[in-house]
């Protein structure tokens, strides 16, 4: 049981939770995720950790209401308890000084991108963050991203904020303008697919953080399997981050619909 100590609405559909989890707050690194279960009949769902405060003993999760389980979680209030929370899981992001790193975060994917932006900046990289969303109210954590980035480009589908266009257009603008050593992308699978196709064209090494269906999250079930470079890999223990150019995104998109 983990107590919710903070709740903030980024938008109607996107909620930020601060949850007591002292052990996870202490041991987690950028890129790690947790498995959350709400209620005795609840399912186990993975969420990437957005940030942590080891002193306070809390972690931050940013949840988008998309289905039954995220809906249940978003209904919890400060003072309520999350039935089960386990982690940190997965492999941490590989951080080093690459040079110029483009961080392309779509929608709620900006939340798990934030610790990577911070860590990349701290490692001495020039960090250019490209945030994409359908409209202005879905752009989240802009101030925090700005404080750790050398430059921020905002793209909205409807042009209600930043520039009008897709996130790929923002990324392409940077690639055409200067040498990019690494691209990191987190967001909806379809977005990561198109970012990956773009950066492949320009031969920019790219890492994608995949969010597949999981049950246990510890390698036990294989529900999260994806094809990477022609081989089956488990997102929970081999990932969640992979060389985006090797990921079979079409298969992943198909597998995400397994229970629809």
């Amino acid at each position: 049981m983990n107590k919710i100590v903070g709740k903030e609405y980024f938008s109607d559909r996107v909620v930020k939770f601060e949850v007591e989890a002292p052990l996870i707050a202490r041991s987690r690194q950028a890129g790690h995720f947790v498995i959350v279960r709400v209620g005795k009949k609840g399912e186990r769902v993975p969420y990437t950790i957005a940030s942590a405060d080891p002193q306070k003993g809390t972690i931050t999760l940013v949840i988008q209401r998309v289905g039954k389980s995220s809906e249940k979680l978003c209904q919890l209030e400060v003072g309520d308890y999350i039935t089960d929370l386990v982690g940190p899981l997965g492999k941490a992001t590989h951080i080093e000084k690459f040079g110029t790193v483009v961080c392309a975060g779509g929608g709620v994917g900006v939340a798990p991108m934030l610790p990577i932006i911070e860590a990349m900046k701290q490692a001495g990289n020039r960090v250019i963050s490209v945030l994409g969303a359908r409209s202005k109210d879905l752009i989240i954590l802009e101030d925090q991203v700005r404080s750790h980035s050398d430059e921020v480009i905002i793209m909205t589908d409807d042009g209600s904020y930043g520039e009008k266009g897709l996130i790929t257009q923002g990324v392409e603008k940077v690639i055409l303008r200067e040498k990019v050593d690494l691209c990191v992308t987190i967001g909806p699978a379809i977005m990561m697919k198109f970012v990956s196709e773009l950066t492949r064209k320009y031969e920019v090494p790219t890492i994608a953080s995949l969010n597949t269906i999981m049950v246990d999250g510890t390698g036990m079930c294989g529900a999260c399997r994806v094809t990477v470079g022609g081989k089956t890999r488990f997102v929970c223990i081999d990932g969640p981050e992979f060389d985006a150019h090797q990921v079979d995104f079409d298969e992943m998109l198909m597998r995400l619909k397994a229970y629809n």
Binding site: T218, C221, G222, R225, V226, T232, F234, M254, A258
Partner: peptide, 22 residues
């Protein structure tokens, strides 16, 4: 022994195919 083996044959990642553990 929490890591299921697959056979690595074509189509094994189709929906509806899963490990016994899952």
């Amino acid at each position: 022994a929490g890591l299921p083996n697959f056979m690595n044959i074509p189509g094994e990642n189709l929906n509806g195919i899963m490990s016994c553990n899952e």
